[in-house]
Amino acid sequence: MNIFRLAGDMTHLASVLVLLLKIHTIKSCSGVSLKTQELYALVFATRYLDIFVTYVSFYNTVMKLIFLGSSFSIVWYIRRHRVVRRSYDKDQDTFRHLFLLLPCLVLALVINEKFTFKEVMWTFSIYLEAVAILPQLVLLQRTRNIDNLTGQYVFLLGAYRALYILNWIYRYFTEEHYVHWITWIAGIIQTLLYADFFYYYFQSWKNSVKLELPA
């Protein structure tokens, strides 16, 4: 564990908690894409299939449980909570899951490190995580209505990815046999998806004006 990995995990954790707390306290999920949240729940479910079989560390197991629990809670809130579900912008959040799911599944079946069920599912989760933010970014762009918390949520997610790249660079130089092309390429693509958002986020921060994305 290095400082970049820890900082990455903490921003990831913070992003999920910010979103969960926002939904829980103000009882509104406006501006939040259910599609993206469902994809994340699927990402964690397929990635942590071996959670009770393979033990890495206490830290890893606890974090996995938190990510699984929080992602499914968020989906539950938006779909089932009596008050929260009324604030969901269903007509704006129209991105189709299948456009992302199918290519990721096909790619995972073709490009993987080992052709076993567990490994293909893990690879699928890596590919899917890389693009799962797209429905959220499309929703932000479409409604142009970004409250502070939703902006912070997306910013923290992007920061988590950037920190993971630093973690990989660090591990590459400090650990033997640390070459993971699949994770690296998917991770870099995932981080690049945030570049545009980051640009506008920093602009608004610099000029201390409300974050607004161009139409």
Partner: peptide, 10 residues
């Protein structure tokens, strides 16, 4: 040296 089994990142 063998690569460690499994994935140790989240």
């Amino acid at each position: 040296k063998e690569e460690p089994q499994g994935h140790d990142e989240l």
